[in-house]
Design a protein around this nucleic acid. Structure first.
Lengths: 112, 112
DNA sequence: AGGTCCTGTCGCCGTTCGCTGACAGGCACC
DNA sequence: GGTGCCTGTCAGCGAACGGCGACAGGACCT
């Protein structure tokens, strides 16, 4: 499942919890949070603490994977027109098959 | 990349930001957060606001995917032996072989 | 009818947040 | 030397957090 915002997360947490037949109280006790917190997070509370959210996901057996896109999402860039986004070319030799780790290794090779 | 805790997220955010050759100030402006917040999040601040973290990931073109495991991780369950795990049946037709995606599809068919 | 479990909601309180402004040090460049 | 950019850190402040205890209402069972 794709996670774009806190509402997605909340929805996922609730659905997974229900799939596992846990009550809010049971899951909250398991995670070590208050039931009220869980209620709000399930409803998509955007200001919840990331550490607790991740812990809850782990308790639910949900694994998060992050994948980086090659292109920047256009909508996101338009969001802050005053952003100082320099149209800076990437390093030579940067190809589509270049992994993030490779990039980091290369970056470590030269001081900033 | 696997995301297990806030430190993973912070590390990913920093690496991706550097990959895109953005400064902390530039990314913060783009996301609409303070640079100080970004500094701390990159260092793995576990109490950061999930909504802002997700927004930052989007600004970096990072897509999050959640995958649910069939089985519960044994270690997580042992974490709270006093958990009130009630074996309570839910709506009829709800079986153990029910996948998360199926659950979501079914949920989309009915209003919340 | 009663009881149990569950979810949604409320108020209070100490803690922490995110923001702003600022400073210090490192590095690259002229 | 200077300048500019960057990152890490600090202090203060209003807003919100998360936890706790509690209440209300619904569903289900006896």
């Amino acid at each position: 499942m794709r996670i774009d915002d806190a509402a997605d997360l909340g929805s996922l947490i609730r659905k997974r919890r229900q799939a596992l037949r846990l009550s809010q109280g049971a899951l909250a006790a398991q995670v070590g949070v208050s039931r009220q917190w869980l209620v709000e997070v399930e409803r998509g509370k955007p200001r919840a603490e990331i550490g607790l959210v991740l812990r809850t996901l782990q308790a639910l057996g949900v694994r998060l994977e992050a994948a980086a896109r090659r292109r920047m999402p256009a909508g996101v860039l338009r969001r802050a027109p005053s952003a100082e986004v320099a149209p800076m070319p990437y390093a030579p030799g940067f190809s589509a098959h270049f992994g993030l780790d490779d990039l980091l290794d290369r970056a470590r090779g030269k001081p900033r």
